[in-house]
């Protein structure tokens, strides 16, 4: 097994050029999502989905942000992607085994196995994976599995002109990211922090193989503040189901033994 690979997306370096989105579309031969004008900043991609595996968020908020000095305004970009969680909701909920963990530690949907049940979609706390209506299958970022097999780095990281998207061994990326945060803090950007870099940072997913450096609350980037893989809590539900099943059996037996008699 190769070392665990991942992305470190440093949003302070992102210039919102969307080269990652284009590179992803082109390399993976993804269909377009239509040509729409949302009226929402410069973002007409809106969200990750079945055929959108990179999405650059354009954040314009009339709220002051350190260290931006343009008055009461924050301007942020962030290239979002599948997080390839250490505990992946989609993978754990997949009933067919179509979603697997690869030798690179990434989470991969095998297109020839997926039967389009849709359970992974509601199991992802980030809203990444989705089903494509035209072919009825679930799709998401593959961490460019085909490129990794040929010793190439993923298309988005390759195309990124500012090294906002960095690809590498997860351990190295974490080290590098910590260093970057330290430097940013030194230079006055005290609000820089890592999102999902380790299991301690994000216990609900036990860490993201694709983690982020953010400058504002996760919600600002449309990221959940304390996400949790649903299966971490499923024991409660099974216990409730077991108790209900037992109660149902008891009532049934009781009804059979006593319910049939004519009332006096």
């Amino acid at each position: 097994m190769a070392e665990t690979k991942g992305f470190f997306t440093d949003t302070t370096l992102c210039i919102g050029c969307k080269a990652c989105e284009v590179a992803c579309k082109q390399w993976n031969q993804l269909p377009d999502d239509g040509f729409l004008f949302t009226g929402m900043s410069y973002d007409n991609t809106v969200h990750l989905g079945a055929s959108t595996w990179r999405h650059v968020a354009f954040i314009e908020r009339p709220v002051p942000l350190t260290p931006q000095h343009d008055g009461a305004f924050s301007w942020l970009f962030s290239s979002d992607v599948c997080k390839h969680c250490a505990r992946a909701g989609c993978l754990e909920s997949c009933p067919t085994g179509a979603i697997v963990r690869t030798e690179y530690g990434s989470v991969y949907v095998q297109p020839d196995v997926c039967n389009g049940c849709g359970y992974c979609i509601v199991s992802c706390p980030f809203g990444v994976i989705n089903r494509r209506e035209e072919d009825g299958q679930a799709w998401k970022c593959t961490l460019c599995y085909d490129r990794l097999r040929e010793d190439m780095i993923p298309a988005c990281a390759k195309a990124c002109p500012t090294e906002s998207i960095q690809f590498g061994n997860l351990e190295d990326l974490r080290e590098h990211a910590k260093e970057r945060v330290r430097k940013l803090h030194e230079s006055g950007a005290h609000n820089a922090y890592l999102y999902g870099a380790t299991a301690e940072d994000q216990p609900g997913t036990e860490g993201l193989n694709a983690f982020f450096l953010l400058m504002d609350k996760p919600e600002v980037y449309n990221l959940p503040p304390d996400p949790c893989v649903p299966t971490k809590k499923v024991k409660d539900s099974w216990l409730a189901a077991g108790a209900t099943a037992a109660a149902m059996a008891l009532v049934a037996v009781g009804a059979v033994l006593f319910g049939g008699r004519e009332r006096v």
């Binding site: 239509g34 729409l36 929402m40 973002d43 908020r61 992802c124 504002d216």
Partner: peptide
């Protein structure tokens, strides 16, 4: 397929400093 896409902004999002969202767009699929 262009017609099946996500809804276009119909209501102007109300930015709230302490309760932010990404233009009131959904988080989940």
């Amino acid at each position: 397929h262009a017609q099946k896409q996500a809804e276009v902004w119909r209501n102007l999002p109300q930015p709230e400093a302490n309760d932010p969202t990404y233009y009131d767009r959904p988080l989940l699929n």
